[in-house]
Computed example of a mutant assay.
Amino acid sequence: MAVAGNGLFTRDKLAEALASVCAAAGLDPDGAELLRMTNNAVFRLARQPVVVRIVASRALRHRVAKVVRVATWFAGHDVPAVRLLPGVVQPVRVGGHLATVWEMVPAGGVKPRGRDLARLLRRVHALPAPPFPLPTWEPLDDVRRRLDEADGLDDADREFLLGRCDEMASRIDDLDFALPPGLIHGDAHLGNLIPSPSGPVLCDFDSTCVGPPEWDLAPLAVGVVRFGEPAGRYRELSRTYGLDVTRWPGFPVLREVRELKLITSVLPIMTSHPEVRPELMRRLDDFRRGDTSSRWSRYT
């Protein structure tokens, strides 16, 4: 398999992977648009209302079967979320590639707001335990996996990040959460809400697990500081959900863990997509220096 961690998942290789997946699923890849490329390469097909999501990180392939189960569970409970394309055995495995195939969300609707995210999170958090096993919240697991797979990161930076993971793991163990654990989305930010004519829908279930609901409230709070998102979006989230996680004593720990994930999310593709490196190194430098107020730019 051509994997990003080896610097081989170039755009040409991605096109080959997409063609293979589409052939297996009976789809047409011609004219497909690459929407996003971090841990997954997400394509919107031009000739069918379908989105194809190809795993771009070898270290995170283990999550795909869970994504399929969670998406099916959400559909069974009528949770507003993206739906798997019916009639296709999922995940799609072909030529060493692993992918999921989704119905495209109809265009239209208004831009999602903090209150929309809060309402969807309350709905997810209220679901009963699913009839299949879910992993327990281990927010640093994917960070360590990305570090193992990273190509182009020097030893000093790697050792610093691994050391910080060890430090944060100890601090996580000491947290006293205010809410009981349950099903959580795991990466709950406004970028994982898609507008539709009938209202916003959730997407991206890679990080879904059993864990503290507080974790689902942290990404938007961190986004206000690091990405300059309007503070009103977070206030709307906390007011609608009924908890301001930034006032909880454990929030600084959640913030640092979230920032570690934001820094390392592109490590598997750093060589094949060198344009992400300047922002990655800027984030890492801020984190190393303890600069908690510097603004970051989104990876493109």
Rank of each mutant, 00 (worst) to 15 (best):
A4S: 15
A4W: 07
A4R: 12
A4H: 06
G7W: 01
D12G: 06
K13C: 14
E16K: 10
A19Y: 02
A24S: 15
G26Q: 02
L27F: 01
D28E: 05
P29N: 04
P29T: 13
D30T: 15
A32Y: 04
L34P: 07
L35I: 10
A41R: 05
L45Y: 12
A46L: 05
R47I: 01
P49R: 06
V51K: 03
V51N: 05
V52D: 00
R53E: 08
S57H: 11
V67A: 11
R69N: 11
W73Y: 08
D78M: 08
V79P: 01
A81L: 05
L85I: 09
L85K: 14
P86G: 07
G87M: 09
V89H: 15
A99S: 03
V101R: 09
G109A: 01
G109N: 02
V110G: 11
V110F: 10
D116P: 02
L117W: 06
L117Y: 02
R122F: 07
A126D: 05
L127G: 02
P130S: 09
P130V: 12
P131D: 13
L134C: 05
P135R: 08
W137E: 11
E138I: 09
R144C: 08
G152H: 06
D154Y: 06
D154K: 12
L161E: 09
L161S: 07
G163H: 14
R164A: 09
R164N: 10
M168K: 10
A169V: 03
S170W: 13
D173W: 09
L175S: 15
F177R: 07
G182C: 02
G186D: 04
G186R: 09
I194H: 02
I194A: 04
P195T: 07
P213K: 09
E214M: 03
L217G: 06
A218V: 08
P219L: 10
G223A: 14
V225H: 00
G228M: 01
P230L: 06
E236K: 07
R239W: 04
R239C: 07
V245Q: 08
W248Q: 14
G250M: 08
G250R: 11
P252A: 01
V253T: 14
L262D: 06
I263P: 00
P268A: 00
E275W: 14
E279G: 06
E279H: 08
M281L: 15
D285L: 05
F287M: 11
F287C: 08
G290N: 01
D291K: 00
R295I: 02
S297H: 15
R298T: 10
R298A: 13
Y299P: 00
Y299D: 00
